[in-house]
Amino acid sequence: MSQATATSHGDTPMIEMTGLNKWYGDFHVLRDIDLTVKRGERIVVCGPSGSGKSTLIRCINHLETHQQGEIVVNGVPMTQDVKRIEQIRRNVGMVFQHFNLFPHLSVLENCCLSQTWVQKKPRADAEKTAMEYLERVQIADQAYKYPGQLSGGQQQRVAIARALCMRPEVMLFDEPTSALDPEMIKEVLDVMVELAREGMTMLCVTHEMGFAKTVADRVIFMDQGQIIEEAPPETFFNNPRSERTKLFLSQILGH
């Protein structure tokens, strides 16, 4: 199923969630989630809006706090301890729907910020790494511009490079193409496909079913805060078992 690269970490899963529950006030957003992501696995999470898919991946780097259950990231159990949370976050890269680049810093500075302050790298090393990744997302020529001077697609590629600069072991994508104009979606997806080919562990919340078909090892369908169906893409798209999944697929693939 997956070509998990067995490294020195052995077979410890990248992410392990057991019995995860979360409420916003009285609203039960995540219900009894059990999910294991192996090293090198690419997972696409889809589902109708409000189904809890963003909330789910935001729990992994503790942008959201869960009330019940356990999350273990790269062998490190999540607790409320700030140091522990920051340790986990250093291994987890995240790309947001609205890019969230720092508008007061240049593209290069965006990529160097956490290298300098979290990893304490010397300026020159940080810039070298930043330029390497900007090169890989093909935007190195814009390094000295400010985010506000770039198109949405360019900004999202910078955001991916910024996350990669921390050399994370897993990348979370929270609807990375939903805020983009149609003609820019491809440039971002190309970068993501490339990243998947290199064996990065990825968890993507997206509506891009083409992307799911191409790179996903598993597709997860969520509705009302629960995982409804989990299957490799061929099975998921051709022989969905659940009625909800069929309805969802007919709605997004129907035209």
């Binding site: 780097n61 942008l63 947001f96 720092f102 910020l113 921390m166």
Partner: peptide, 25 residues
């Protein structure tokens, strides 16, 4: 809030996020 979240996701601590990202803006 996305600015603070992006800082968190990069592993920056509270004072770094405030001093380098939120307060300058």
């Amino acid at each position: 809030s996305g600015q603070d979240e992006a800082g968190k996701a990069l592993g920056l601590g509270y004072w770094h996020r405030m001093g380098l990202i939120v307060l300058p803006q």
